[in-house]
Design a protein around this nucleic acid. Structure first.
Lengths: 196, 196
DNA sequence: CCATGTTCCATACTGAGAGTACGTAACTAG
DNA sequence: CTAGTTACGTACTCTCAGTATGGAACATGG
């Protein structure tokens, strides 16, 4: 492992740490998962973790951001396949619900993030990823005359809250695949409320 | 303090502990608040806390339940003042949002409970208090022919999720009193989606 | 009212884990 | 090649959840 540049060493180590953090925090939750365990899973020691990250919270935050980047990309991809703004919204919501089937995503993003990072911080980060996608979708729908005008930031948050709860509900189901349509139907009903 | 019965001693101590837990957990969050601190604030020691409660989680749970009991009573009181089912629903939602102005309620019920107790457990407890009130309200509206039929448990959860997010949003505002009407207006728009 | 058992609670301890101090190895700049 | 910087491991400290144990307050059968 000689002859690597410092940047390469750092990227390698931080990458391994964040991947391990996503796995362990996602599987076991924030509190029961120790820094030592994450470091060991990444093949390094606590010293490396504390060198690259400020502490346990900062490591969790990095894992949280990675989760958001992935789901946001998936949402934009799915919504981009629809022509109609309202259809894109529905499609995005459905994709989000499907994404909630991943236990790691639920644990990190829906369950622990607000408590660990604080609600303000968690939502501020999400504002750059998840919420931005949703907000853009609503704006397009309003601009296209398909949705009623109103307080879009507030509306986006309410929809987001409903979706998060729906995602948790879906995950709890014995047959998520069977319940997804029913859930999506109720969600669509609320989206219909926005139609002009 | 002599001459008291055992039940009186226990009630006194558990009452003091739960009150202290609500104050400290509500102000500082679950993790940074130590059992010793709660016990000290209650005027007892850790031993008393561990005698009456299984552990830190159980103590938090007791505080959580107290919060729910209070808000549920407030909701039923407010909703009971309205004759029309849909008006009662709107009234209940607004009351819930107002309740979210209490930082302790937000911290314990909205922020920490799902993470500390687990989502399933938290919602199961809420099912006996908060969610029950909301669910009943929806059922009455549907039975009275004022709201569309559908999957009521799912619908109640979606509304609940939206309300929680709205409550946090409201609390973050600089002038909550001014923002409450705007938030309530967006919430009402979604409730309108249920009208036949 | 006395003896014995039970409930309640304080004090002293143990263990786990977050965070820190410091030493050393790997890279970089001159 | 050397001085300096960055990356990381090791060995601590310190806080805190949980446990063990003893004793005080109360209960109960005689």
């Amino acid at each position: 492992m000689a002859g690597r540049t410092q940047a390469e060493r750092s990227d390698e180590t931080t990458g391994r740490l964040v991947r391990a953090a996503r796995r362990l925090f996602g599987a076991g939750g924030y509190v029961p998962t120790s820094i030592d365990a994450v470091a060991a899973a990444a093949g390094v020691t606590k010293g490396a973790a504390y060198h690259h990250f400020g502490g346990k919270v900062a490591l969790f935050r990095a894992a949280f951001v990675r989760e958001l980047e992935e789901v946001s990309a998936a949402l934009e991809r799915a919504a981009g396949e629809e022509r109609e703004p309202m259809a894109a919204l529905r499609r995005g919501c459905r994709t989000f619900l499907e994404h909630c089937l991943d236990p790691g995503f639920r644990q990190i993003v829906l369950l622990d993030a607000p408590s660990v990072l604080g609600w303000e911080t968690a939502r501020a980060i999400e504002h750059d990823h998840l919420l931005r996608v949703l907000h853009d979708g609503l704006r397009v729908a309003v601009a296209g005359g398909q949705a009623a005008d109103g307080d879009l930031p507030v509306r986006a948050r309410l929809v987001f809250g409903a979706l998060c709860e729906g995602g948790m509900l879906l995950a709890r189901s014995q047959s998520p695949a069977a319940d997804l349509p029913r859930l999506a139907a109720e969600a669509d009903r609320f989206l219909e409320a926005l139609r002009l």
